[in-house]
Design a protein around this nucleic acid. Structure first.
Lengths: 110, 110
DNA sequence: TTATTATATTGCAATATTACGATTAATATG
DNA sequence: CATATTAATCGTAATATTGCAATATAATAA
């Protein structure tokens, strides 16, 4: 197997998990933090910042692009990446709604 | 390869990603939602609720236990699971701090 | 045109994850 | 005790992910 049975889950459950999955690798967390920290578009210096090979960084950037969290603008021979603010907000709402669930103190048994 | 290079990332980055990784599968999202919804401990009926085999559910529960998000109490021949509220709160803070980063509007270029 | 530079893609090896049947361990119940 | 019930563990097959060398592509510079 090794194949997630997405069909048996709700769209919301699949959405939450696919967003979370993207955050589930330290390189992608580091890339996002760097994009936030510099407050501007970042190109190839991510390879120097993070200690991974260029194709590996490129692959992680692609995954971040696929879920829409970042976008890239071509600037001469380099590409300029930055956070997609609108999608970041949407995503934040989805994750927050999930995290802010609360257990009912009364009926809990452990 | 296939081995994440955790050594090159900060402890915080690794912590964020390992929490997110747990949410990165719809079955675990569904399990947590069910534990919240029922407001009480759930045992083997997770297997009926979610459409996965018993060993698979057991494996996902183990991962949730490993990061401390749930705990299980043995009750006769069955096991009673519930959200670990204290750890859930701690985790929520860590993820929220990451999600609430904001880009500086002024210096953004895309 | 021919470099040069920067990023993407391909291909592949190593490892991880998902899922489940079979089995085991522990506790109930007759 | 024998047997059912419940959940964990083991073993394994299928697929996914991570990482990188090699190569391709695209844009600019000389």
């Amino acid at each position: 197997m090794g194949l997630t049975k997405s069909e048996i889950f709700t769209e919301a459950q699949n959405q939450i998990s696919s967003i979370a999955k993207v955050f589930g690798h330290p390189a992608r967390v580091a890339i996002l933090q760097h994009l936030f920290k510099t407050n501007s578009c970042i190109c190839g210096d991510l390879v120097d910042e993070i200690g991974l090979a260029q194709p590996t960084i490129s692959q992680h950037l692609k995954e971040l692009k696929n879920v829409g969290l970042i976008s890239g603008n071509i600037e001469g021979t380099s590409v300029c990446y930055c956070i997609d603010k609108a999608n970041w907000s949407k995503m934040k709402t989805i994750i927050n709604d999930f995290l802010n669930q609360d257990v009912n103190e009364n009926t809990n048994c452990c």
